[in-house]
Amino acid sequence: MFEGGDYDVQRVAGIGPANWLRPNELLRNCERSVAAQSYFEWVRYDSAAQLHKLVVAPLEDTPVALRAVDPFSVCAAQLAAAQQITQQGAEHYLTRALALRDRLPHVKQLLKEGHVAAHHIAQIVSRTDLIEGSEHMADIDRDIAAQLRRRGSWSTNRIRDMVDAMIMLRDPDLVRENRTEAKKRRGVWNNNIGDGMSALDAVGSAETNNLIMQRLEKLAMSVCNADPRRKAERMADALFATVMGREFSCECPKDPKHPCTASIWTWPADTMVSGVDMKLVLHVIADQATVNGDADHPGYLQGHGIISAEHVRDIAERPETKQRPMRNEYEQSQPLWNDHDLRAEAEYADLYAQDQAA
């Protein structure tokens, strides 16, 4: 069916017309189609990397590389025309192709074999940007590939947490340095978006922004059902009220026949910002050894995902943090991602797959 290349022709040839097949054959059709899609995505990445090697690499140390339209842009433009995508999209695609070739060869091989879905590649590449040039780069590539070979499904969040955990377990110093630089990028910006509106962008630590969002959401949900505003609008009004020290109120019609049932807790304006009588709870899971500084195992932050040991200790040192020991029977804390847990999850995935097949 497909000429050229080293792809398993029989596997692709096994994909038949859907209207001729029975249910089990249709499921095999879907499975083989996903594997074929991954393979053809590998062909695209491999071809893009090879084109870069032929067109761009020979000119990297020449005056041509200093031009406004450099060889990389020209190469991306050719890929954009061939694949009917934008110039920016082609440049991002070419960057990922080079990362797979030079940084993640084992992950790239899995893509060829159909063991990783094509739509996960962009996230895996972006989350491993910080390991470029690291002495552990090859080990992290193998670790990620080993995890992806396990049976079972991978959601976007599971991919994110798995990649982050593999990096943190191999090179915690690299993650610590990266987080130190990231903390310097904190800031707030006001952007004009037209029609008399602007967007307020804020960059802060994951736990701080999570707490802010929880508070705004609590305020937004404290109005009665007759409030005409959408939730997003109420959260925007709650942000203004909280920051400016104004009262946040319900905007229902105040119909005497249907009294307002809002549960907003109002304080005197000169003593405290109006708000909801509430407690904001943000869960962080980590082992005690990491909190004490005796280990560097990654932790887990609710609403964010895997965090570094340094980040765990930063949260533990905040004055509002309350530590609640789980009182398990183990004297020595274990990392969140250990071999026993991974084997147990793999066995569960196998049992689930067998059950589905039955």
Rank of each mutant, 00 (worst) to 15 (best):
D201P: 01
M137K: 13
Y300S: 13
T95E: 11
E31A: 09
W154F: 06
A65E: 14
W265C: 08
H340S: 06
R22E: 11
I306Y: 10
P253A: 03
A18K: 05
K184R: 09
Q214E: 09
A316C: 11
D294W: 04
C75H: 02
H304V: 09
W20A: 15
W337P: 00
P105G: 03
A241T: 06
R158C: 03
E31W: 02
A57R: 15
E233N: 09
P298K: 05
A81W: 07
P253H: 04
K184C: 02
A349M: 05
H120C: 12
I124M: 05
R158N: 04
S263E: 15
R44A: 12
Y300F: 15
L110F: 03
I306A: 12
A65W: 14
Y45V: 04
H52P: 02
V223F: 01
H297T: 10
R28K: 15
L282I: 12
I193E: 05
G293R: 06
V69G: 00
H120T: 09
H283T: 13
K183Y: 13
E310H: 11
N192M: 07
A286T: 10
N19E: 12
T266A: 08
N338L: 02
L216Q: 00
A90E: 01
D201G: 05
A202T: 10
L351S: 07
N209C: 07
C224K: 01
A82F: 03
V125D: 08
N225V: 08
S198A: 10
A138C: 09
N191K: 14
P58S: 08
W20T: 13
A165W: 04
E329I: 11
T321I: 14
K183M: 11
W189L: 07
A68Y: 09
F240E: 15
L280C: 03
E132A: 14
E132M: 04
H119K: 10
A358P: 08
Q84A: 10
P335L: 04
S205C: 11
D61H: 12
T95D: 12
E310L: 09
R158V: 06
R170V: 11
A182L: 07
A316P: 03
P63Y: 09
T156P: 03
R142S: 13
A138Q: 14
A77W: 07
T271Y: 03
A117K: 13
A353F: 08
L59A: 14
H297E: 07
V281T: 07
A99P: 00
L148G: 04
A349E: 05
H115V: 00
K254W: 02
N24F: 10
S222D: 11
P335T: 05
E217K: 06
T86M: 02
V312P: 01
V273Q: 12
M197H: 01
L200E: 05
A13K: 11
A35F: 06
A82D: 14
R234K: 07
R127F: 03
Q10V: 06
D201M: 11
G299P: 01
G4A: 13
Q10D: 08
S33H: 12
R176Q: 13
C252A: 02
E317W: 07
K183H: 10
V284D: 01
A90I: 05
Y300V: 07
M162P: 00
C252G: 01
